[in-house]
Write a protein that binds this DNA or RNA. Sequence first.
DNA 1: CCTACCGATCGGTAGG
DNA 2: CCTACCGATCGGTAGG
Lengths: 186, 186
Amino acid sequence: MTTRAVRSRDDVVRTAGKLFAERGYHGTSMRDLAAELGLLGSSLYSHISSKEDLLVEVVEKGAHLFQSSADAALATSGTAAKRLKALVAGHVDVVLDHLDEVRTFLNEAGVLDEVHRSRVLAARDRYEASYREVLSEMKVADPKLAAIFLLSILNALERWYRPTGSLQRQDLVDEILGFALNGIRR
Amino acid sequence: MTTRAVRSRDDVVRTAGKLFAERGYHGTSMRDLAAELGLLGSSLYSHISSKEDLLVEVVEKGAHLFQSSADAALATSGTAAKRLKALVAGHVDVVLDHLDEVRTFLNEAGVLDEVHRSRVLAARDRYEASYREVLSEMKVADPKLAAIFLLSILNALERWYRPTGSLQRQDLVDEILGFALNGIRR
DNA sequence: CCTACCGATCGGTAGG
DNA sequence: CCTACCGATCGGTAGG
C-alpha cells in the first residue's frame, strides 16, 4: 500500500520558494509544486488560497529577513566602519541561509500586483537607506552611489557563490569589504 | 477600413526581446507578443518557427553584443588600465543601448534547453575571462574575484540606472571605474 | 496576415 | 488529501 503524503502549510510555502527561485513564478505550475511535495494540484488549496498569495508570502519573507538583518547591524555599537561590516556580514548570511526566499525576493517581485510590488520596493529602499546612512557617517563622497555599488555586489552573490567552493563565508565577507573600501588596489 | 499591420521578422524579434525583458519568457504569451505588434497570435508563425527559437535569438544577440564589445576593448593599445576603462565603457554602452536584449540575456538564459544554456554560459565565461586577463595584467591580487565584483556592478545597472536621471553615461563609467580601482575612499 | 481550429495545460472549485 | 471537474489560456497548425 502507498502512504498519503501529509504536508504542513510551511512545507508548501518553503517548497514554493524553492521552485519560484529555480524556475520563476510563471515557470512554476501549481501541479509542479504539488508534485514536488508528493501531492496532487488540488490538494494545495487546503493549505493556501492562491498561487499569488504564495508568491506574496515568499517575497515578504525575503524582505523581512533583510530588514531584520539591517536593524541588528545598525544597532551595533562602535564606529560606522564596524556597522558597515555588520551590514555586509548580515547580508551574506541572509543570502546564503535563505537562498530560495532571497532569489524569489530579488527576481520575482516584479510579478506582484501593484500594491504588493510597491510595498516591496519601499522595503528595498528602506534597506538601501541603511547602507546610505552608514556610508554617510563614513564621509564617503557619494553614499547613494556607493550603496548601490556595494548592494550590487551583495545581491549578485545569489548568481555565482557556491558554499561548496574554496571561498569560505567569512573570507567572502572580508573580500567584499576590502573591495568596497579600497577597490582592487590592495 | 482598418489597415493590416505588416511586420518584419526583425520587428518580431525586437518586440519579443522587449516583452521577455519586461515580463520574462514564461510571463509572455505568443498572443501578448502578437498584440504588441498589432497582429493575431497565429500570424507570428510566418516569421518565426517557435517561441523557444525567439528566446534563443534574443539571448544570443545579447551574448554577441557583449563579446564584440570586449574584443574591441582588448584591442585597445596602451596600458592595462586603459583597456579596463574600455571594457567598462563598452559594457555600459551595451547595457544602455540594448537594454532589452541584455535583460533577457542576463535573466532568462536559464529557461533555455541544456544545449543553448551551456553555450550561453560558455559565452559568459569567455567574457568574464577578458576582465580577468586585464585585471591580471594590472597585478590585482585576486583577478577572478575582482572580475566577479566589477561585473556584478556592471550587470546590476539594468536594475536601477535610468538615462533620464542626473547621472550621465560618462560619469557613470567614471564612478564605476573609481569605485573598482579605489573603493569608497576617494 | 487571418480564420478556424487542435490537444495540452493552466489556476482553481465542489464535495467527500 | 483525492476524485472529478471547470472555463480560460497556452503554443502551434492547416489552409487560404
